[in-house]
Simulated assay, not measured.
Amino acid sequence: MDITVINICDNVSSLQGAAAPCCGNSQGAQVSPPRIDQPFVNGVIETPGGPVPRIAASLTKKDLLGAIRVRFGIRRMHYTVDPGLYASGDPGPNDPVFVTANYKLSFDRLREAVSGRNGWILVLDTKGINVWCAAGKGTFGTEELIGRIASSSLGKVVNHRTLILPQLSGPGVAAFEVKRRSGFKVVYGPVKASDIPAFLDAGLAATPSMRTKTFPVVERLVLVPVEIIGAAKIALLALAILFLASLFLTGTSLDMAFRYSYNAILAMVIGITAGAFCTPLLLPWLPGRSFSIKGLLPGVAGAILFFAIQGDNGTRNGTLQVYAWLLLIPVLSTYLAMNFTGSSTFTSLSGVKKEMRWAVPLQIAGAVFGCVLWFTSFFVH
């Protein structure tokens, strides 16, 4: 099932006043061109504004493996390209200028979409963050765009004064300010890079479907690996601490420590699966608007599953330990579910802040109470 937000505004820059988020300035922007020894650069084009690296039109096996790697959170914040101006194909002074982020996945999506066409790609320094998130954080912003236009000598490279920006960059860019200070007009392209060829063929006119941001199941699940791996790293540290605590509190009994650790491992696996996999998978059907509420139902289901597996062993300390995890599993699930707020079409920055004001204190309270029950179980017989 697709989740759709209709009518993302054509001129999203109207959402922002003249005081655009600042992430750089035209005085301090990088002057030197991008490095030509980057793997995807296959030549240089001489222009009146200086040499411009030419990029390969198609993605290589190394590009595809790199994309898979970052999906699993491996060197995620280092998967970048140099900011600056690039050439795609054999562009001339009248060919279009596309603007994107220096997160390599964003860059690769664009160069793949315009493969076989001549054009210029202006890459902004978004600190390795994708277009949508960078626009919200301010790194894909008015000041950075104006500064990058100046530092790349774009006005000398092309005769026209039109920039094609990703539609999802709109919240970070004040188009009228860019026009006033640089002379370049901002035109917002389609949401998806794959629609750019049709957008160009239509004379820079977008259809309603090009202005619609969907959040289908494939896009939701592609976010799962990095969330699970991130949660698993923290869980391993927590398990090590819990094992040592169990060993100490049981009088160095390895048998009891492993028994307690087994419960912890099972509970954390269930909690992580509920929050980082089941929640995005079932997102359209889960009740509530807040992601913490959406993550609650899978968390409760996970707690029931944990109880069905472990049950009540008839001892008071065993019962307390089970109750502790019955509380901690939903807490973990709701917390992990909230990580998807920044990558969905469901919410806004103000909505996220509002949710965090009430959800996080409840999660902390639940976690503290669950931990108290867990530690208390060692002293009850």
Rank of each mutant, 00 (worst) to 15 (best):
I293W: 11
A257M: 03
G183W: 05
F199S: 05
A232Q: 09
A238V: 09
V5L: 13
P33N: 02
L282P: 08
A113P: 12
T334L: 10
A264F: 14
G50W: 02
M210T: 03
Q310G: 02
A308N: 12
D90H: 14
P33A: 08
L349F: 12
T126D: 09
F277L: 15
A67P: 00
Y260G: 01
L281K: 13
P48Y: 06
S88Q: 12
L237F: 15
L286V: 13
G366F: 11
A193H: 13
G275E: 10
F277I: 15
I36H: 02
I293E: 04
G49D: 03
N159E: 03
R220G: 05
M77G: 10
G342E: 09
A308Q: 12
T319C: 06
A57Y: 01
I272P: 13
L244C: 11
S115A: 15
S115K: 02
A150H: 07
T139E: 10
R180H: 10
V41D: 00
L124S: 07
D201Q: 10
G366W: 10
I270W: 05
V218G: 07
R75Q: 15
Y79W: 13
R35P: 05
V97I: 04
G147C: 03
R109G: 14
S290V: 10
V97S: 06
F98Y: 13
G288L: 12
M256Q: 15
T334H: 03
I164L: 14
V52G: 08
A198T: 07
Y335E: 11
G288H: 11
S153L: 00
I74F: 11
